[in-house]
Amino acid sequence: MTLTLKQQLSSPAGILKFLVKYNTIFIFILLVIFSALISDVFFTSVNLSNLLKQVSGIGIISIGMLIVILTGGIDLSVGSMVALLAVTFAILVNIFALPLAILMTIVIGFGLGSISGYLVAYQKMAPFVATLALMTIARGMSFIYSKGSPVTFTTVGGQFMSDFANNSTLGIPNIAIVFFIIVICTMVMLRYNVFGRLIIAIGSNEEASRLSGIKVNKYKFLVYAISGALAATAAIIVASRTNLGSPNMGMAWELDAIAAVVIGGASLNGGKGTAINTLMGVLILGLIGNILNLLNVPSYPQQVVKGAIIIFAVLLQRFESK
């Protein structure tokens, strides 16, 4: 950073540059102000807490999507994985003690992600294709294991998770806290950990990374596995909120996750993107849904608005690269 904030904001051109650079945060703030003006309900704690609860699941898989996209890949399987792992968790929590059930679900998520990772890193399959296959497999399996209907939590452990997922600590929903912790860990990892730095290097120039002696395949494998583990975490959270695991969960969530990452300024070519901006992307998408709901806009027009916002955000980012 060559300029201080004050220097940057001292000229109109500087302000414009600043706005473009931090455009996601800027859009986010604009949306908050707009929402507050347009609806009295928006700034109530009930609404804000609902908003956070709604975005936490997608938010967590968006973080997984971010690290995959940073390497220049994509993970289309995360939405279906949420369904499969939510069903898995519901079954497991009815059999095993809660900590064991949680652990097993996350390990299974990691394992499922590893399949994509293996196909992409070691079999050189295109990420789009490998994870598309995993997406339909996971969705199909979730229907098979649940026999097509939701699996309800029946044990004390399940009840505990349900309470946890629907309650708040210091006014912040517990599941949002989980999401924020994951965001902070990812921020730290991308900035201060070798793993994070190397996946950015790989996404920025895979050949140069290889010739720098980096184990490119290992890291590409790991990002998909981690994305799977994060899908498991998201699955546990969404299942616990409703006290059940359903094969219909996570429908098209992979698309929302990609949208959130892209709105957050990440490049689908890899090498560019941050956790904080992805968080903003998630909140922006959530906010749009929330305010449109408050305005009683039906869900189809909502989709149109969402798409328009994505285009607007990405167009804005093009100024930045110029």
């Binding site: 730095r197 190397l198 950015i200 290097a201 920025s204 120039n205 140069a208 990374s209 010739l211 090498g271």
Partner: peptide
């Protein structure tokens, strides 16, 4: 193509 990471900073290039 193979030597440097163009979009990354000098620091990130060197320490890789």
């Amino acid at each position: 193509e193979e030597g440097v990471f163009l979009p990354l900073s000098i620091r990130r290039n060197i320490s890789v």
